Simulated scan of single mutants.
Amino acid sequence: MTIRFPRTAALLLAAAVPLAATPALAEHHQGHSQTIVQAAAGSADHTTLVAAVKAAGLVDALSGTGPFTVFAPTNAAFGKLPAGTVETLLKPENKALLTKILTYHVVAGKITAADAIAAINAGGGKAALTTLAGTTLTATIEGGKVVLTDAKGGKATVIAADVGGSNGVIHVTDAVSLPG
Protein backbone atom coordinates (compact mmCIF):
# COMPACT_ATOMS: atom_id res chain seq x y z
CA MET A 1 0.00 0.00 0.00
CA THR A 2 1.34 3.43 -0.93
CA ILE A 3 0.92 6.12 1.67
CA ARG A 4 0.20 9.47 0.10
CA PHE A 5 0.67 12.74 1.90
CA PRO A 6 -0.74 16.15 1.19
CA ARG A 7 1.24 18.76 -0.72
CA THR A 8 1.40 20.81 2.47
CA ALA A 9 3.46 18.04 4.07
CA ALA A 10 6.02 18.28 1.28
CA LEU A 11 6.18 22.05 1.75
CA LEU A 12 6.52 21.55 5.50
CA LEU A 13 9.40 19.17 4.87
CA ALA A 14 11.19 21.63 2.63
CA ALA A 15 10.96 24.30 5.33
CA ALA A 16 11.64 22.00 8.25
CA VAL A 17 14.82 20.22 7.23
CA PRO A 18 16.98 22.31 4.94
CA LEU A 19 19.91 20.35 3.56
CA ALA A 20 22.13 23.41 3.86
CA ALA A 21 22.14 22.98 7.64
CA THR A 22 25.10 20.60 7.35
CA PRO A 23 26.80 21.46 4.08
CA ALA A 24 29.88 19.33 4.76
CA LEU A 25 27.92 16.10 4.60
CA ALA A 26 25.66 17.23 1.78
CA GLU A 27 28.45 18.55 -0.44
CA HIS A 28 30.69 15.57 0.24
CA HIS A 29 28.06 13.09 -0.76
CA GLN A 30 26.51 14.44 -3.93
CA GLY A 31 26.16 11.66 -6.48
CA HIS A 32 25.40 8.83 -4.05
CA SER A 33 28.37 6.70 -5.14
CA GLN A 34 29.62 6.30 -1.57
CA THR A 35 28.15 4.32 1.28
CA ILE A 36 26.58 6.10 4.22
CA VAL A 37 29.71 5.35 6.29
CA GLN A 38 31.97 6.91 3.63
CA ALA A 39 29.72 9.96 3.45
CA ALA A 40 29.83 10.43 7.21
CA ALA A 41 33.60 9.87 7.24
CA GLY A 42 34.01 12.78 4.83
CA SER A 43 31.97 15.14 7.00
CA ALA A 44 33.76 17.41 9.49
CA ASP A 45 30.46 17.50 11.45
CA HIS A 46 30.45 13.74 12.08
CA THR A 47 33.95 12.82 13.28
CA THR A 48 32.67 11.66 16.68
CA LEU A 49 30.02 9.46 15.07
CA VAL A 50 32.58 7.91 12.73
CA ALA A 51 34.99 7.25 15.62
CA ALA A 52 32.15 5.57 17.52
CA VAL A 53 31.15 3.43 14.50
CA LYS A 54 34.78 2.30 14.18
CA ALA A 55 35.12 1.59 17.93
CA ALA A 56 31.92 -0.49 17.84
CA GLY A 57 33.13 -2.48 14.84
CA LEU A 58 30.13 -1.46 12.73
CA VAL A 59 31.93 -0.09 9.66
CA ASP A 60 31.54 -3.28 7.61
CA ALA A 61 27.93 -3.83 8.65
CA LEU A 62 26.90 -0.27 7.78
CA SER A 63 28.87 -0.41 4.53
CA GLY A 64 26.84 -3.41 3.37
CA THR A 65 24.17 -3.32 0.71
CA GLY A 66 21.43 -2.19 3.10
CA PRO A 67 19.47 -0.16 2.52
CA PHE A 68 19.72 1.66 5.84
CA THR A 69 18.29 4.84 7.26
CA VAL A 70 20.74 6.50 9.65
CA PHE A 71 19.85 9.28 12.05
CA ALA A 72 23.33 10.79 12.38
CA PRO A 73 24.04 13.00 15.41
CA THR A 74 26.53 15.79 14.80
CA ASN A 75 29.67 16.37 16.86
CA ALA A 76 27.75 19.11 18.68
CA ALA A 77 25.03 16.56 19.53
CA PHE A 78 27.60 14.26 21.12
CA GLY A 79 28.98 17.32 22.92
CA LYS A 80 25.63 17.73 24.71
CA LEU A 81 26.15 14.42 26.55
CA PRO A 82 27.52 14.64 30.10
CA ALA A 83 31.28 15.24 30.28
CA GLY A 84 33.29 12.07 29.77
CA THR A 85 30.41 10.06 28.26
CA VAL A 86 31.85 9.78 24.76
CA GLU A 87 35.31 8.88 26.03
CA THR A 88 33.83 6.21 28.30
CA LEU A 89 31.72 4.74 25.49
CA LEU A 90 34.72 4.49 23.18
CA LYS A 91 36.59 2.20 25.60
CA PRO A 92 36.78 -1.45 24.46
CA GLU A 93 35.01 -2.69 27.60
CA ASN A 94 31.93 -0.61 26.64
CA LYS A 95 31.65 -1.90 23.06
CA ALA A 96 28.30 -3.65 23.66
CA LEU A 97 26.68 -0.49 25.05
CA LEU A 98 28.18 1.66 22.28
CA THR A 99 26.86 -0.79 19.68
CA LYS A 100 23.39 -0.66 21.23
CA ILE A 101 23.38 3.15 21.16
CA LEU A 102 24.64 3.35 17.58
CA THR A 103 22.24 0.72 16.23
CA TYR A 104 19.46 2.70 17.93
CA HIS A 105 20.17 5.35 15.27
CA VAL A 106 19.72 2.94 12.34
CA VAL A 107 16.54 1.62 10.76
CA ALA A 108 16.52 -1.17 8.16
CA GLY A 109 15.25 0.11 4.82
CA LYS A 110 15.37 3.50 3.18
CA ILE A 111 13.04 6.01 4.80
CA THR A 112 13.12 9.36 3.09
CA ALA A 113 11.88 12.48 4.82
CA ALA A 114 8.73 12.33 2.68
CA ASP A 115 8.19 8.72 3.80
CA ALA A 116 8.61 9.72 7.45
CA ILE A 117 6.17 12.61 7.15
CA ALA A 118 3.65 10.39 5.36
CA ALA A 119 3.95 7.79 8.14
CA ILE A 120 3.55 10.48 10.81
CA ASN A 121 0.42 11.81 9.09
CA ALA A 122 -0.98 8.29 8.58
CA GLY A 123 -0.28 7.49 12.24
CA GLY A 124 -2.34 10.38 13.56
CA GLY A 125 0.68 12.54 14.35
CA LYS A 126 3.35 9.98 15.15
CA ALA A 127 5.19 7.06 13.63
CA ALA A 128 7.09 4.27 15.38
CA LEU A 129 10.43 3.42 13.79
CA THR A 130 11.91 0.06 14.77
CA THR A 131 15.69 0.38 15.00
CA LEU A 132 18.39 -2.22 14.48
CA ALA A 133 18.79 -2.21 18.27
CA GLY A 134 15.31 -3.79 18.38
CA THR A 135 13.71 -0.82 20.09
CA THR A 136 11.61 2.07 18.85
CA LEU A 137 12.11 5.73 18.06
CA THR A 138 8.93 7.79 17.78
CA ALA A 139 8.80 10.37 14.98
CA THR A 140 6.54 13.41 15.26
CA ILE A 141 6.38 16.90 13.83
CA GLU A 142 6.95 19.64 16.39
CA GLY A 143 7.24 23.29 15.52
CA GLY A 144 7.27 22.36 11.85
CA LYS A 145 10.24 20.00 12.24
CA VAL A 146 10.59 16.22 12.34
CA VAL A 147 11.52 15.18 15.88
CA LEU A 148 12.57 11.75 17.16
CA THR A 149 11.73 10.84 20.74
CA ASP A 150 13.83 8.10 22.29
CA ALA A 151 12.96 5.53 24.94
CA LYS A 152 14.10 7.89 27.70
CA GLY A 153 12.00 10.80 26.44
CA GLY A 154 14.94 12.62 24.86
CA LYS A 155 14.28 14.51 21.65
CA ALA A 156 16.43 14.83 18.56
CA THR A 157 15.42 17.22 15.79
CA VAL A 158 16.24 16.39 12.17
CA ILE A 159 18.31 19.34 10.94
CA ALA A 160 19.16 17.97 7.48
CA ALA A 161 17.36 15.24 5.57
CA ASP A 162 17.75 12.89 2.65
CA VAL A 163 21.52 12.85 2.32
CA GLY A 164 21.69 9.89 -0.02
CA GLY A 165 24.16 7.07 -0.11
CA SER A 166 24.63 4.05 -2.29
CA ASN A 167 23.24 1.90 0.54
CA GLY A 168 20.70 4.18 2.18
CA VAL A 169 19.93 7.63 3.45
CA ILE A 170 21.18 9.85 6.27
CA HIS A 171 19.13 12.31 8.30
CA VAL A 172 21.29 14.55 10.48
CA THR A 173 20.10 15.15 14.06
CA ASP A 174 20.96 17.65 16.77
CA ALA A 175 20.96 15.15 19.65
CA VAL A 176 22.03 11.61 20.47
CA SER A 177 19.09 9.25 20.97
CA LEU A 178 19.40 6.81 23.87
CA PRO A 179 17.74 3.40 24.11
CA GLY A 180 15.91 2.42 27.26
Rank of each mutant, 00 (worst) to 15 (best):
L129W: 05
G144C: 12
I117R: 01
K155S: 10
G109L: 05
G134S: 10
A119D: 07
A133T: 01
A161T: 01
T138N: 10
T65I: 11
H105C: 09
A26E: 14
V147E: 08
D162F: 05
I3F: 12
D162K: 02
K80F: 02
D162W: 02
I111P: 00
G153F: 09
N121F: 14
A113N: 00
R7H: 13
V169I: 14
T85L: 12
G143F: 11
H29A: 15
G154T: 05
K54Y: 04
L58F: 07
L132T: 05
K80I: 06
F5E: 15
I101K: 01
T74N: 02
R4W: 11
H32A: 15
A160L: 05
T131M: 08
V146L: 13
K80A: 13
A14S: 13
G64K: 07
A55F: 04
P6M: 14
V107F: 06
S63N: 13
Y104K: 01
A39N: 15
G109A: 08
T74S: 12
T135Q: 14
G84I: 10
V106G: 09
A118R: 04
I170Y: 02
T2Q: 12
G79W: 04
G57A: 09
T8I: 12
K95W: 08
A122K: 12
N94T: 07
H29F: 11
T88N: 14
S33K: 13
G123T: 02
P23H: 05
G57C: 09
A161E: 10
A122E: 12
I170F: 02
A139E: 04
T135P: 00
A116G: 03
A52N: 08
A56I: 05
P73W: 05
A14H: 12
S177P: 00
T48W: 01
I141F: 02
K95C: 03
T88Q: 13
V106H: 06
V172W: 00
A127H: 06
A61G: 04
R7Q: 15
L25G: 02
I170H: 00
T138L: 02
K95T: 12
K126E: 13
G64N: 10
L12C: 12
A51Y: 05
D150G: 09
Q34K: 14
K126P: 00
G144V: 13
G180L: 08
L81P: 03
I120C: 00
A175E: 00
A72T: 04
P179C: 07
T149L: 10
Q38G: 11
T85C: 10
E93G: 06
L12Y: 04
L81E: 02
S63W: 08
A40T: 01
G79E: 11
T140K: 09
G125D: 03
A41I: 07
Q38F: 02
G180Y: 01
T140I: 03
I170N: 01
K54R: 15
K152Q: 15
K80P: 00
T48S: 07
V86S: 06
V107M: 02
A44Q: 13
A96P: 00
T99A: 09
